[in-house]
């Protein structure tokens, strides 16, 4: 018999986040996290990034954080997606959005393609070591970093993560979901984009400070 997978259940972790999420928080979700987040219900300020370009949720979250500096923007990302856009960690810290929280769910595999190991996971590396994403985020300049390996730790610490001085990076060790499918788009993209923008409210309400004009 094989050993049980390490890490907390992804859905359990998201249920805990859902309990701590403020009504005016924006949640950007992608890939497996989007699939599970959608399964827990809907919210007008959920940006279910499906279809997506894999890896770009962090960048889209940065754009939202800059445009909506008085809202908290929470990005739900995977380790495979993080690896596809590692530079975005540097871009984020260059901009220093204090309202951006990046939650990275690390299951060590490309889940929906059959659970092949990522090159960041111990199983995907010749030396058998695991990339330290928390150290990486810290070195990039995230002002707050966290690592949760079990559900009780996450339950106890989720509020602290959301309220930390941003930009914030938290790594959560999660177990792969066996046989998981990729997320399906919950509706027509154009209509979803319009509804989301309407939910954010008129420009300037909680959003950007209008730029200076020359002269």
């Amino acid at each position: 018999m094989s050993a049980p997978p390490a890490g907390m259940g992804l859905q359990d972790a998201l249920v805990a986040l859902r309990a701590e999420r403020r009504a005016d928080d924006v949640v950007v979700s992608a890939m497996g996290a989007a699939r599970e987040w959608m399964g827990l219900g809907t919210h007008p300020l959920d940006w279910v990034f499906v279809p997506s370009s894999m890896g770009q949720a962090t960048s889209l979250g940065l754009g939202l954080a800059l445009a909506q500096p008085r809202r908290r923007i929470i990005v739900l990302n995977g380790d495979g997606s993080t690896l596809m856009n590692l530079g975005s960690l540097v871009t984020i810290t260059a901009e220093q959005p204090g309202n951006l929280v990046l939650l990275t769910f690390d299951n060590g595999v490309y889940e929906v393609t059959g659970a092949q190991p990522t090159p960041g996971a111990a199983g995907g590396r010749q030396a058998g070591d695991r990339v330290d994403y928390v150290a990486l985020a810290g070195a990039c300049g995230f002002r707050s970093t966290f690592h949760f390996t079990t559900l009780p730790e996450w339950l106890a610490g989720a509020r602290s993560v959301l309220d930390a001085t941003g930009p914030t990076f938290a790594l959560l060790d999660v177990a792969p979901v066996p046989g998981a499918r990729g997320p399906r788009s919950p509706g027509p993209t154009g209509e979803r984009a319009r509804r989301f923008m309407a939910a954010l409210g008129p420009r300037g309400e909680l959003g950007i400070d209008h730029p200076r004009r020359p002269g």
């Binding site: 370009s53 890896g55 979250g61 754009g63 939202l64 975005s88």
Partner: peptide
């Protein structure tokens, strides 16, 4: 100016900005 590390990022950052009202 938002300086990104690779150009693929630029489109997603711009998308987030646009959705946020910029």
């Amino acid at each position: 100016l938002v300086r990104v590390c690779r150009e693929g990022e630029a489109w997603a950052v711009a998308a987030g900005l646009y959705l946020g009202g910029a």
